[in-house]
Design a protein around this nucleic acid. Sequence first.
DNA 1: AATAAAGTTTAGGCATGCCATAATCGGGCA
DNA 2: TGCCCGATTATGGCATGCCTAAACTTTATT
Lengths: 226, 226
Amino acid sequence: MSVHSGVPTSSAVEDYAKAIYALAAESDGPVSTNAVAERLGVTPASASAMVKRLDELGLARHVPYRGVELTARGSQLALEVLRHHRLLELYLAESLGVPWDRVHDEAEVLEHVLSEELEELIATKLGNPKRDPHGDPIPTRELEIEEDHTLSFDSLEPGGRGTFVRISDSDPQMLRYLADRGISPGAAFEIVEKQPFGGPLFARFGDEVHVIGGTLAARMRVEVST
Amino acid sequence: MSVHSGVPTSSAVEDYAKAIYALAAESDGPVSTNAVAERLGVTPASASAMVKRLDELGLARHVPYRGVELTARGSQLALEVLRHHRLLELYLAESLGVPWDRVHDEAEVLEHVLSEELEELIATKLGNPKRDPHGDPIPTRELEIEEDHTLSFDSLEPGGRGTFVRISDSDPQMLRYLADRGISPGAAFEIVEKQPFGGPLFARFGDEVHVIGGTLAARMRVEVST
DNA sequence: AATAAAGTTTAGGCATGCCATAATCGGGCA
DNA sequence: TGCCCGATTATGGCATGCCTAAACTTTATT
Ligand SMILES: [Mn+2]
Ligand SMILES: [Mn+2]
Ligand SMILES: [Mn+2]
Ligand SMILES: [Mn+2]
């Protein structure tokens, strides 16, 4: 049990705050209890009980049947844990050579246990980085986070050029697929061809043209260079 | 909840195994429930219940009113966690620059959460070290540990020479005191003078003669050079 | 040997965090 | 307006891990 902003928090509470934060970012307005349950792999009944507790802790406001929203404190908690998570991912990858498809699971546990002192030492050692290995922005010490204005890779048309900036960190298979092909955030690309109906996308990264399946393309975020 | 040697273990179970292991090393024969309780800062009733559970898990044998002893499995668990603890302490000190009086508390939490994969990466990065920053031996990958044949510093007489090799890691104040004077495991010394009745010891480390209080001297372990 | 003191265990409780099942609520469609 | 279905809550259970108070065993003292 740690304490953040005067609120005693367990790993479970922190995970709920993170989940609500992420879901709220995906689609605004209050988050449904069921969505939280599904994301965390618990039953709706469990999620309902925990959401009620977050409300009592002052981390969220829950209006029955209407969904849940984080308070300022709740957002801060989520960002604090997100900062831990992403710093750890980058640290494990850079300093210990953990492959990028495995850093997530390690960080998922360590994030709840990292002290403020170690957080600070790690951030300093890494040079206060702005993004983790998957391109996700790392909240600052002051818990500010840079919202990005990226597009989904599969929304581009042939001829489109840009930079691959970000990918969901939670699917190791996708990450391994990209790693095997030497594709990682920061890579420049050009769309060569696009099959309709969620079909694959053919994109050039460096010298080679790679086939990116529809599902994968939907999870890759890119910035286009006009 | 992790799994070691087929036994599901929580942080609490691991801490109890460590405590029993340490107490058994200090004085042989079965370990009393009260000693365990005191070491872990819980009530005797709590310790009694947990010791019973360790027995059911096959990690210890507990004879009511007679004390508890670890089984082979229980010792392995304790050594596994000790390996984690000491590798982490050294890693935090070497790679992140955490002062040696603070590594213990961090390691105390992280030891339960470190994956085998990270353990291995850390051990490799450190060059499979044999001792942690306090001079405590690190169990090998195969969980063998080197028993040392050290003497208590306060058992020496004036004129005695040797090497300071080890000190309890759990008292930050003592560690800071030594660190402030540049005394750490590996340092050669010569006893200059010794006051009776638990009084201080005057010992030369390098050029300087330092005053070592009776309590501190009792916790320092040394090897004498005939 | 009897009794006191010390050490240990049991009994009963509390909090966390998860589950399943069953009752209930509320918004959208007929 | 009423009904249905999905979302929500209520209820009861399980496991962990700690507590206090009370009962019990062992050991030390007289
Ligand atoms: Mn991640
Ligand atoms: Mn922090
Ligand atoms: Mn330690
Ligand atoms: Mn290990």
